[in-house]
Amino acid sequence: MTVGILALQGDFREHAEALQRLGVTSRLVRLPQHLEGLERLIIPGGESTTIGKLMVTYNLLEPLQQRANEHLAIWGTCAGAILMARQIDNAYRDQPRLGIMDIRIRRNTFGRQIDSFEAHIDLPLLGAEPLKGVFIRAPGIESAGPNVEVLGRLSSDGTIVAARQQRLLVTTFHPELAGDDRLHRYFLTL
């Protein structure tokens, strides 16, 4: 199994290292031909405006939307989650997006960089041991449609931070920075 990692901008190397720890080969995706034969794709953290623009310029937006329709498993972390959301509050103009998941997300919902934080997340499907989430200028999921399963919330105030719609997964935090590979393992089972 080869897992693709969208590598236009952001922390794609950290995802590749997490997959490597799990013995999984990854392929960096920068052009449409890199999508061939992939079963899964991770969209990393980064700047959603930068990644979105490069997706348009290098013709990745439509192929990815089509592959999502054909049930490619896709996991977006932070900026990746923003790019997957159908509705973006606080968006930059009409910033390009995949719009494949029925959630409403708000950019920079917790404030600026000095408000970035680490916190415990209630994520029952990963078992009893709590998960530490790293939130960096993070977005928040404001609401989720009827076909979306809420997987995790901030222990402190219940904000939705992880959700799933069939083979689409979003997390507003960065499991790739926390050294805890349980969510990567979970994504590989989707």
Binding site: A7, Q9, D11, G46, T50, C78, Q113, F117, I136, L177
Partner: peptide
């Protein structure tokens, strides 16, 4: 420190 370094990690490739 993780969140401080983390923002720089998000800027990579940019």
């Amino acid at each position: 420190f993780t969140t401080k370094v983390g923002l720089a990690q998000m800027l990579k490739g940019g």
